[in-house]
Write a protein that binds this DNA or RNA. Structure first.
Lengths: 116, 116
DNA sequence: TCTTTAATTAACTAATTCATTAATTAACAG
DNA sequence: CTGTTAATTAATGAATTAGTTAATTAAAGA
């Protein structure tokens, strides 16, 4: 098999596909750590909805939680985006090779056919 | 607004969240270009299903098409993953700063409380 | 103990996603 | 023209997702 299956990437990419969740991650990265209630503040959706988003982010390995007194604090995990980064760089390795191949194909296909 | 909204990233991340679609992209990157039928070969799903996946990838800006005779060929777009890369590097800029902040927080919170 | 605050879980709904099979479009080959 | 190949569109269905409000859990504080 070319690709060994990566449910981790499934979860990461689908977690990041939602703009609310991306905004949460971005904010946590600039602020460091927030209680669930504070995470919810900038958004026009209910607290339960935020709670769900945080569960999705946690399941994807993007955030971790800390409990202190009556609050749950969340923060971005140190290595959270590593799988995405390594997938990206793995693809980039093929990139130039693939483009070269396409150029060769293009050259071979349109030697006399000078479009219009 | 902290984040200027990026429907492009929504589409990119959600396109990449599906393992079939990622496999298609990966294969196109190693092979260069394939007809829709050839894209479908390694998968156990129907051709219409593949056609849909390709539409999703195209809408996300990940692939482009070329028609030749009775075939449609697809290939990865040159700059396809650029938005993902730039989002990632933008987040990484905050990364170390955020982690430093967390360490400071941690140090400030547990000066006498030596977690037994 | 009783009330308030913080967050999650439950129950429900609307919309989207991913697959299927059947029908359609379009180009080519005889 | 007719049949075949290539792919998309149509129609449908099951599962998942993202949101809501109401109920619940748990800790704090009077």
């Amino acid at each position: 098999m070319a690709t060994p299956r990566a449910p981790q990437l499934d979860d990461l990419f689908s977690a990041l596909a939602d703009p609310t969740r991306r905004a949460i991650v971005e904010r946590l990265l600039t602020v460091g750590e927030l209680s669930v209630g504070d995470v919810a503040v900038p958004f026009a959706i209910s607290t339960p909805a935020i709670s769900r988003h945080l569960q999705v982010l946690e399941r994807a390995g993007l955030i971790e939680r800390r409990i202190e007194r009556q609050w749950r604090f969340v923060r971005v995990r140190t290595d959270a985006l590593a799988p995405v980064e390594s997938w990206l760089s793995r693809q980039k390795r093929h990139w130039t090779a693939a483009l070269d191949r396409l150029e060769i194909l293009a050259a071979a296909q349109t030697p006399e056919k000078q479009k219009s």
